[in-house]
């Protein structure tokens, strides 16, 4: 493994030298191009790291067909802000498991970053982060969504997230009775 890794790194440096670039170009599903620091991309996204190491990065824009331009813009924005604010390697999630990994509270800038997003943008970002294997971004965005749900009644949640109530009155009453213990106090 050690040897392999060394080889990969060697290849990477060779490629960097060849291209003489420290950024990668990403292409959204609707064809827009974004540049992001190679170091940040590799550190924050396991998928991009793999692509960089594997040499499948296209200088003319690596196709990310699953991600729209708005979401990709946010991803790039996040990577750049991360690169500016955090000393490198300080915040790399160690575990993928959601249930066991202790979640570190979002930093002030991360909070601000997700707070300014619209709902659609937030959910798009969750999917993009999931697709790119960006653990920390995923944690921060999911945390933001659960913060928005916490302490809210089903009615309020429907309103906040614009979810249609597809229950009949009777069904809703039945569920409320079943879950009477959980509705206590409200």
């Amino acid at each position: 493994m050690e040897v392999d890794k060394g080889k990969g790194e060697a290849e990477e440096t060779r490629k960097v030298a060849e291209a003489d670039r420290d950024t990668v170009t990403l292409k959204s599903s609707d064809g827009k191009l974004f540049e992001v620091s190679k170091e940040a991309a590799a550190r924050l996204s396991t998928v991009l790291a793999g692509m960089i190491a594997g040499g499948s990065i296209d200088d003319n824009g690596t196709d990310l067909k699953q991600i729209g331009s708005e979401a990709l813009e946010n991803v790039v924005d996040y990577c750049n802000k991360h690169a500016n604010s955090i000393p490198s390697a300080a915040l790399i999630s160690s575990s993928i498991s959601f249930n066991t990994a202790p979640f570190k509270e979002p930093e002030e800038w991360e909070r601000k970053f997700v707070d300014r997003l619209s709902h659609d943008a937030l959910f798009d970002l969750v999917e993009a982060a999931n697709f790119l294997g960006m653990e920390r971004l995923l944690d921060v965005t999911c945390h933001k969504i659960s913060e928005m749900m916490k302490g809210k009644s089903p009615d309020q949640i429907r309103e906040v997230f614009n979810i249609k109530n597809d229950y009949t009155k009777e069904e809703l009453e039945e569920i409320r009775q079943e879950l009477a213990w959980a509705f206590y106090d409200d």
Partner: peptide
Amino acid sequence: DCFSRLNEDLLRSILSNLPTRSAATLAAVS
């Protein structure tokens, strides 16, 4: 509906920050 796009893992990761009662009441949402 923004939630119906999310897969199981993402939903679980959102739920993981909620207390049991909050999570249980979600069944009444949709």
